[in-house]
Structures are given as structure tokens and as C-alpha cells.
Design a protein around this nucleic acid. Sequence first.
DNA 1: CATATGTTATAGTTATTCTATAATAATATA
DNA 2: TATATTATTATAGAATAACTATAACATATG
Lengths: 127, 127
Amino acid sequence: MAKTLEIVIDRNSEQPLYLQIYNQITYNISTKKLNKGDILPSSRTLAEVLNINFHTVNQAYQKLRTNGIIVLGKSKKYAIAEGNNSEKGTKLIEKEKDMVNEALAMGYTENDIIESVKRIISSIRSD
Amino acid sequence: MAKTLEIVIDRNSEQPLYLQIYNQITYNISTKKLNKGDILPSSRTLAEVLNINFHTVNQAYQKLRTNGIIVLGKSKKYAIAEGNNSEKGTKLIEKEKDMVNEALAMGYTENDIIESVKRIISSIRSD
DNA sequence: CATATGTTATAGTTATTCTATAATAATATA
DNA sequence: TATATTATTATAGAATAACTATAACATATG
């Protein structure tokens, strides 16, 4: 069952719990701690581990599913998607736009932003 | 007073009103529709134009101020900040990380992401 | 059959967001 | 000086989102 999935939730974060789960699962995927085909723990199991309600985990799973990041097998278990889902990214583009605008308004130059993104990608790659 | 500030709010958006205002002001700045030193409309005035409560506008202004994007002059009016505020960006980096992780998990390659950011920057520059 | 799973439904609580008023202090303006 | 405009603070309430608690159902697994 599921690799040991490292998720830490912070109840004092301004970020909703379900988004914390969502983001940390994408992190686990991009750092190859989770790989294509890997099975996720059931929402009830993960909820118990994290000491939260299973509906909250479900909310994260639904968002991952909507974005094509995980898929439900006929075994009724969620797994990391095999395929590419680059067509699903309209909301992602919107987020990128907001992020870029914010950075520019803060005084970052175009180069600053690109270098920053490159640095982030490298640091993720080395995790 | 204040350049004609183009802000459109969408009450059906999933994004809170104050964030819509925040994001659109950063957009106006990065597209040079607002420039350093330009004065923003008072929170009451903008609230009336947008047909929302002035506290909501205030929330956006406070966030802009916290991020060093606008400053309050002794005239009691908010203006676009003159200086660079690149040191304020720790939350921005967190957002970038989440964005990059999400993109990687969706199947974007590193190059996809960088190209996407470059494309967004270009499109903003040409607005 | 018994268990584990996702899904749906209902209900309630808590937190966030948005609104509505009012008051105060500081600045600008007539 | 007096009036108006501004940000700020303080309350309070309404509306929405997030989180929790149970229960029930269908399906797949062992």
C-alpha cells in the first residue's frame, strides 16, 4: 500500500487543510517520492493518520482527481495518474498570472522571476 | 486623482473580492497602467465605484501595503511604492513552490513551466 | 459473508469573508 | 477657523467556506 507518504498539516496555517494536503501530494509527486501508478492511502486511513476528518482528505483527493493528477482504479483506490494532463491547466495559468503580476508589482524584474522559478525547480529536483 | 483604475469584480468568482482587487491592482502596476507615485482612490471611493463595502477594499489595500506594493503618504493617501521590495517575498516564494509542484504533478516538464512563465511575462508586457 | 473502499447525504460547528454603522484622529481645503 | 476627506478602529451581523460527525449505500476484495 502507498509509499510512506510524508504529509504534515499545520492547523495554524492560513492555508486550508485540504489545500495543504493537495500541495504536499503534488510535492511528493514532483520529488518522485510518489510515482506513476502508486496507490494513495484511503481517505479514511489518511484522515486517521493526520487526525482530521475523512471528508477533508476527500476534498483534497477530489481536487487532485479534477486536475488529472490522480485516477480512481476499478479497485476503488486512487493512484498517481500515468498520463500527461497538460490540457487541464487553465486555472494553473491564472495562478501563474497572479503570481507574476504580484512579483512585478513587488519590484522583481522579469529576470528575477525566471531565475526564481528556475531556482525553485532545481531545489525541488534535489529533494 | 488616481489614473482611471480598471477593476472588474466578479461576484461569482471563487476568489474573494479583496483578492480580486489585490490581484488587479498588481496587474495594473505590472502593465504600467499604474506607475510609481500614482495615487490610489480612497477606499470609500473605490468601494462606491465597485459597489462593495469599503472594508473589503481596505483589506486589499492592507495586503498591498504589507507587501510593500503601496505606501501611505502623510497626505493620508495611498500611492504606488517607489522602491524595490524584493525582500518581502517569502510568501511569494511559497506560492511559487506550490505552483511549480502542481505543474510538475500535472505532467509539465521543467521547460514547460519556464516557457509558460516567460510567455505570461511577455503577454503582460504587451498589455 | 465480512471488510474496506469511494460516494452521497444530512447536520452542525467554526472560521473567513463581506456588509453595515459609528466614531476618532489627522490632513486638506474653502 | 470650519468643513470635508481621509485612514483607522471598533462592533455587530449576515453570508459563505471549511471542517467535523454520523450514517447509509454500492462495489470490490479477501
